[in-house]
Amino acid sequence: MESSRAQTIARDVLAILVVAIFMFPIAWWALSSIKPYSAIFDRSGPVYTGFTPTPDNYRVTLLGVSRVDIGMEQGGEAAGVIKGGASSYDSRQSLLDSAIIAVGSTALTLLLATLAAYCLSRMQFSGQQSFLFWILSQRFMPPIAIVIPIVFMFRDLGLRDTYTGLILVHSLINLPLAVLLLKSFFDDVPREVDEAALIDGATRWQTFRRVVLPMVKGGIAATAVLCFIFSWTEFLLSLFLTTSIRTVPVKISTFVTSTATEWGYITALGTSAIIPSFIFILLVQRHLVRGLTLGSLKE
């Protein structure tokens, strides 16, 4: 159907509006992160442009510069009293912790989920439908319901406050979705491809590894993005299961203290935390769009 010029314009305007609505909080977040303290809490109203941008919030959270040192640079009162010292707002370790856990749990989830999904897609066994439902049912329960038992189990197993522990928990939560999602991608690859490979002389494993797996790359990339983002942003379980390891969301929550809410640091770390997810998505984007539409397109 041909749409008229007016319709095209109306559609574009609407699209821009919708995007603007979704972008605004992120933009505001990023904007706040470069504001000085006074601009964040200006009593006359929201400040959009009338401030001098400052990297101080990032220097504190990402470079570990103590806020006292920054105060001294500006010739503040504290000069000469305290010097340097570790800053509790230094978030470099948290970013590393989060990265290790997100990458680790994504890798583990994909490893298990691709194998499980291939079997569920290609092989017949009794109770297959019930098994699929059981996998799905794992998502019915809210995480809060399992937190307490897991805390006790992890304490007894020595997994509390370890990377392994959090990687395992995040993988467990991601697995059902990953298996079901990947199964649908495997289902899209015709069975005849497997059969052709088997006739060509491949074993089951070679068929999986060399023929079918490369054909669902897009699906794997899409699944990886979802798993990574979940783990990167997960708060509740990370909070309960760790003490010294602090993932980024948990770390940010500590910026709300009994004396103040450090909006500057919160927005700086929050903005920085978007970047790894963003880079990750950019890396797999080539496959992502294809992956998300693969099922609906016929060759």
Partner: peptide, 20 residues
């Protein structure tokens, strides 16, 4: 016998090519 040991070749309706 496993398909690979029968020394046969098969052409499928949907070609079943290895897309990658």
């Amino acid at each position: 016998l496993h398909p690979k040991d029968r020394n046969i070749a098969m052409v499928f309706q949907n070609y079943a090519l290895y897309a990658h």
